[in-house]
Design a binder for these strands. Sequence first.
RNA 1: GUGAAUGUAGCUCAGCUGGUUAGAGCGUCUGCCUGUGGAGCAGAAGGCCGGGGGUUCAAGUCCCCUCAUUCACCCCA
Length: 439
Amino acid sequence: MKHAAAPRGTFDVLPSQAGRWQALERTVDDVCGRFGYREIRTPVFESTEVFVRTIGAGTDIVDKEMYTFSDRAGRSITLRPELTAPVVRAVLEHNLLAELPLKLYYRGPIFRYERPQKGRYRQSHQWGVELFGVAGPEADAEVIALGMELVSAVGVTDHRLEINSMGCEWCRTEFRGALVAYLTNRAQELSATSRERLERNPLRILDSKDEGDRAILAHAPTIDSFWCETCRAHLAAVRELLDAMGIPSELNTRIVRGFDYYTCTVFEITSQALGAQNAICGGGRYDNLVKDMGGPPTPGVGLAMGIERLLLLVEAAQSTKLDGAARVDVAMVALEPEDMRALVPVMHALRRRGIGADMDYTRRKLEKQIKSAAESGARLAVIVGGDERVAGEATVQDLRTRERIRVKLADLGDAIADVLRENERSGAKTDGSVADGSQ
RNA sequence: GUGAAUGUAGCUCAGCUGGUUAGAGCGUCUGCCUGUGGAGCAGAAGGCCGGGGGUUCAAGUCCCCUCAUUCACCCCA
């Protein structure tokens, strides 16, 4: 292979797949819009400290997964490994917290230096939302409902919602103390990584997949017996609201998110169809983050969803929700170079009035042109050759019914618009509907 | 960062224990067919066998290194 290849863990979205990406992006815009969220776009890189101070030293992401480098002026720059911290940075920089509540969504690439595997890449893409300024359980419930709505909007069904509360500063501290005390007694039996974590980030041990660890954890104290009344009531209220919206949730006291900034509510949407990386969405409440980043104390809730993983599920579910429609409606077919010259301005006029049209500039043979036109999904062919040329007309052929009519070149635009409208009425209800609520 | 499997035509893959000029199916192109899509028939193009080094009279095949892919661990979306 003489050519360069895409760097490890990255990939090209080829034209055959790009339609699904576009459709998914439209669905995100549509669903977020319906929930009252507005888009925010932030740079793909930030000052390194934006992530270190929020995600937390001691997390894997900060310790070993960041793409960090010095720019030419010696500033430490990091390609964003997530988007919550950048969004908070932007919100503070531009004083967006002046009017609360603030509801934002985003989508775009993130970067993590990890070994690639199914559903995991070095450049991957996420979309997500952040809701600032609402301390009550309605905020948590709305964010979760939005995530669940998007998943079902793309036709995925085999997924579940798991929820937990990591407690507030007080009950979490108590729980951490009890957990550390329990684990310290059995430190010798813990796996090496868990033993190391005992000092740096003990809550993460709850996530361990090591069999020995799990056996020990089976009898470890769990967070739910340490929740203070406020935290317990908050989680209960969130789940009741979800219930009322018809969204079932399962309590999983093992959920510990990978970032330090979460407080109280944390949740994941998971699916078995994803292999080992079973989470498509994760999120939670971060009531201290804004303050910790230098802003006014402001509660917040958010979520992030992995686009590649979501697309994997769309495929696994054989959902057609993201299948795009044909690109062009009309194929221009010219037999001789002079016919091509005559058709170019006609095609341009069609395009300008909003009709998708394309011409095969290279293929000579009529049958080849008709064939590839039909395969491309075009509905009509406009054919000009010997007969039509002398008559100043074109043959307009319906590529499905094979019916042909002759039309004066001058009337072509109107005639085609008519036929397409007709076509729309009769055979429109195909499966290609993208975002149902887009209008 | 650790482990395992895999890299041969645009795609999916054969190529047995090393042995002439590297194979199939699909796809592409051409013709049969002065102006109509399917199917058929005939033909053609397309390969530094991922890259580098080594062993050998001889390497797609064996050994080492490297790059990449896939899956798993770790962790996460």
